[in-house]
């Protein structure tokens, strides 16, 4: 178990060091999310529609789109210098590679989301601070589900010729349940409803996260196999 954990930490550490050196992924994701929010603000008339009604949807679309940028990067980067081959040759379990990638994707996306939230607050004139804790729970559940499935599919898509095109096509239909769930929950939270009102959605997103992490553990061996 200890060995397994240190293998995961090694992979996560490697990703962090690369990112700290280059800083290309994080800034790209952040600016892209900002652009998505801006484009949506231009496309809906905020003087007619209530900001708290369209806000959650726009926020999550921005998260998912920029998250996809990150996912696309995550395995392609490994492919470039044959790093993935090195990882697979290392005496580590394939699940460790999956978890390492999952954690680094998750952390990058979450940090980016925490940077976007204050800007969202300003642009939409919504006070998030009073609902911060339930909102963070929803962001955690949604981001984890997105990364669990996204990491699996990005490891798969990275071996295709048209990987940047195929990843969203494969990923988005499968993400629909979790997107509906988190957008609904965010809307309810911003409307001031307590978490106990949305237990069904929490159950749905949490079981989505668990099942897809489980499926990934079972199938990653078949994807990372040369």
């Amino acid at each position: 178990m200890n060995l397994f954990l240190s293998q995961i930490t090694a992979i996560v550490w490697k990703d962090f060091v690369t990112e700290l050196k280059t800083r290309e992924l994080f800034s790209a994701m952040f600016i892209f999310a900002l652009l998505v929010i801006l484009i949506f603000i231009f496309s809906v008339n905020l003087s007619i529609v209530k900001a708290s009604e369209v806000g959650p949807g726009i926020l999550w679309v921005a998260f998912l789109f920029s998250g996809t940028l990150g996912l696309n990067r995550s395995f392609v980067l490994e492919k470039e210098n044959g790093c993935l081959m090195g990882l697979m040759l290392a005496p580590a379990d394939r699940t460790a590679i999956y978890f390492g990638k999952l954690i680094s994707n998750f952390v990058f996306l979450t940090v980016m989301e925490l940077f976007i939230l204050p800007l969202f607050m300003i642009f939409f004139n919504i006070d998030l601070l009073e609902h911060l804790l339930p909102l963070l729970l929803v962001i955690f559940l949604g981001t984890l589900g997105f990364c669990a499935l996204g990491t699996l599919l990005s490891s798969l898509a990275s071996n295709l010729k048209t990987r940047e095109i195929m990843l969203p096509i494969l990923l988005y239909p499968l993400l629909v349940p979790i997107v509906i769930g988190v957008v609904r929950m965010t809307g309810q939270i911003l409307a001031g409803e307590p978490l106990s009102e949305m237990m069904n959605w929490i159950g749905l997103t949490a079981s989505f996260d668990i099942i897809y992490i489980g499926v990934s553990i079972m199938t990653i061996d078949h994807i990372l196999e040369e």
Binding site: L149, L152, L153, P173, L174, V176, P177, I178, I180, G181, N200, L204, S207, F208, I211, Y212, V215, T219
Partner: peptide, 14 residues
Amino acid sequence: IVGFLNIPFIHFSV
């Protein structure tokens, strides 16, 4: 496999 397991989630969410 991943796609078929998605069906219950789609069902309840929509």
